[in-house]
């Protein structure tokens, strides 16, 4: 009974985490644009981006802890840190571990950004573009519900959001003052 609960919650937190990560990525791109978003002023966009990231991280941690405690999952401590060593679907599990590793780097560098300086912080933050596809691949490959319609619909919505955000990111007038400014450092 407890096992069932752990297993269900373990998967549920994973899926919810993915939702928050999608929101965080979208809001991160919105922050970079320097524009307000709907009714949110710029500082609120940045703030909600951080909230979504931290909430998503918390959910990932829960996802990991619950699965570690779940005897059915049979996960060792090392599987949470070093990818591709697992016994059950090692590739997809490994991607999950890799995603967690990337997340740890991003979150730690973000929390310490004032001490690291803007260049180190930004360099590490690029890893977020890698983080989302790895997490999504892990969900699709490893997730028990991956074949279910509702999950595929959910995953599809996340993918559309991210693709839309990327198209926006690459658009010429992406930043607010792109039109009036001269280019930066050569």
């Amino acid at each position: 009974m407890i096992d069932q609960a752990l297993w269900a919650l373990g998967r549920g937190t994973g899926i919810t985490a993915l939702a928050f990560m999608t929101a965080a990525l979208f809001l991160g791109i919105a922050t970079r644009s320097g524009r307000p978003l709907l009714m949110l002023p710029r500082f609120a966009v940045a703030d909600v981006h951080r909230f979504a990231s931290l909430a998503g991280t918390l959910l990932v941690v829960l996802h990991i802890v619950l699965l570690f405690l779940d005897p059915y999952a049979q996960l060792r401590l090392v599987d949470f840190i070093v990818p591709f060593l697992g016994t059950y679907r090692p590739l997809w599990l490994g991607l999950g571990t890799l995603a967690f590793d990337l997340l740890a780097v991003v979150i730690v560098t973000s929390l310490l950004r004032h001490r690291l300086g803007v260049r180190a912080f930004r360099a590490a933050h690029w890893a977020t573009y890698c983080l989302w596809p790895v997490a999504m691949a892990h969900a699709l490959g490893n997730g028990t519900d991956a074949g279910r319609a509702w999950f595929l619909l959910f995953a599809g919505c996340c993918a559309v959001t991210v693709c839309g955000a990327l198209v926006w990111r690459l658009h010429a007038n992406y930043t607010e003052y792109a039109g009036t400014r001269t280019s930066g450092r050569p």
């Binding site: 320097g34 710029r42 009036t180």
Partner: peptide, 23 residues
């Protein structure tokens, strides 16, 4: 050398800061 005129500070401190033509 770091500022890119994203404007968050001008929203939080409107009495202290305005925004120029380049943001």
């Amino acid at each position: 050398t770091r500022c890119q005129g994203r404007g968050l500070c001008t929203e939080l401190l409107p009495r202290l800061l305005g925004r120029d033509v380049w943001g």
